[in-house]
C-alpha cells in the first residue's frame, strides 16, 4: 500500500509543478461545462416538457462531470503502458516483485485521482456559487450524497478495470491504436459523456443501462441530483459491482496469459 501512496504523491507533485497547465485545464473544463449548459438551456426553453430530468439536475450532472472528468475520461489511457507493450519494455516490469495487473491498475488509479484531486475543487467551488439553476445544487439527501460517493468510487474502479482490459487486449493484436479508438468512442457515447443517458430514447436507454459503460460515470452523477428512483439505484449499484468483478477477473486473466506469452517468447 505504501508504494502506491508514494506513487500517488509523486504524481500529484508533478501535477502541481505544471501550474499553468492545471489552471488552463480547469478553465477549459469550466468553459466546456458552461457551454454545455447553454445548449441544454436552449433545448429546455424550446420544449420544457420533453426534458427527461429537471433542468437543475442536468446542470449538476454537467458540473460534476467536468469536475471529475479525469476520473472517467476514456481518452486518458496511458501511452506509457501502450508503448511498453509495443517496444517490449514490459519485460522490465515483469522483473519487479509485483503483479503486473495490480501495478498497472494502481498506477492508472493514482494517475486519475491525482489529476482529479487537483482540478475538481476549484470547479466545484465555482459551480456551487453559481445562481440556481445554473450551478450545482445541494445533494437531495445525506443518503444520496453517501451513495454518490460510493458509486463515484465504484465507477472509477469500473473505468480503470475497463482500460486494463484494453491494455490486456493489446497483447493479442498488432495495432493497439485501432482498439483504443474503437473502444474510447464507444465509452464516450455509452457512458453518457456525449449526452446524459436519460436523453436517449427509452428503448435505447434500457439496453445502455445494462452495459458496463453505464456503470462508469452515469450512476454517480445521476444519483447526486436525485434523478434515479430507489429501485433504479439498487439495480445500478448491483450492476456496478457485477461489472467490476467481471472486468477485473477478465483483465487479470488476460494479463496472466500475456505474461506467460511474453516469458515464452522471451519478449
Amino acid at each position: 500500500m505504501r508504494k502506491y501512496l508514494a506513487f500517488f504523491r509523486l504524481r500529484f507533485t508533478m501535477g502541481l509543478q505544471y501550474r499553468t497547465a492545471a489552471i488552463a485545464g480547469m478553465t477549459t473544463q469550466f468553459a466546456w461545462g458552461f457551454m454545455q449548459i447553454m445548449i441544454y438551456k436552449a433545448f429546455y426553453e424550446t420544449q420544457p416538457d420533453a426534458f427527461p430530468m429537471t433542468f437543475s439536475a442536468t446542470t449538476s450532472y454537467i458540473w460534476l462531470q467536468q469536475a471529475f472528468l479525469a476520473l472517467f475520461d476514456a481518452w486518458m489511457m496511458e501511452t506509457e503502458i501502450f508503448d511498453s507493450i509495443l517496444n517490449g519494455n514490459i519485460a522490465y516490469e515483469l522483473c519487479r516483485p509485483i503483479r503486473i495487473y495490480n501495478m498497472w491498475f494502481s498506477r492508472s488509479l493514482a494517475n486519475r485521482i491525482s489529476r482529479a484531486a487537483l482540478r475538481c475543487l476549484p470547479i466545484l467551488l465555482i459551480a456551487v456559487f453559481l445562481p440556481y439553476p445554473y450551478g450545482i445544487s445541494a445533494p437531495v439527501s445525506v443518503i444520496h450524497f453517501m451513495l454518490f460517493s460510493m458509486t463515484l468510487v465504484l465507477g472509477l474502479l469500473v473505468t480503470v478495470a475497463f482500460c486494463m482490459l484494453i491494455y490486456g487486449l493489446t497483447f493479442l493484436t498488432i495495432s493497439p491504436q485501432g482498439l483504443r479508438i474503437m473502444f474510447t468512442s464507444m465509452v464516450e457515447l455509452f457512458a453518457g459523456a456525449v449526452i446524459p443517458l436519460p436523453f436517449f430514447p427509452e428503448k435505447v436507454q434500457k439496453i445502455m443501462e445494462i452495459l458496463p459503460f453505464a456503470a462508469m460515470q452515469n450512476v454517480a452523477l445521476r444519483i447526486y441530483s436525485g434523478s434515479m428512483s430507489a429501485t433504479e439505484m439498487e439495480k445500478a449499484v448491483l450492476l456496478q459491482v457485477i461489472w467490476l468483478i467481471i472486468l477485473t477477473s477478465g483483465g487479470s486473466l488476460l494479463c496472466r496469459y500475456a505474461e506467460k506469452k511474453i516469458t515464452v517468447q522471451g519478449g
Binding site: 436552449a42 433545448f43 426553453e45 424550446t46 420544449q47 420533453a50 427527461p52 457515447l189 456525449v194 449526452i195 436523453f199 436517449f200 430514447p201 435505447v204
Partner: peptide, 15 residues
C-alpha cells in the same frame, strides 16, 4: 449521434 438523439426527443431548438 448526440445531435440525432437530442432531436428524437426535441423537435426544434430556438426554431
Amino acid at each position: 449521434l448526440g445531435i440525432h438523439f437530442m432531436f428524437l426527443r426535441f423537435h426544434t431548438v430556438n426554431g
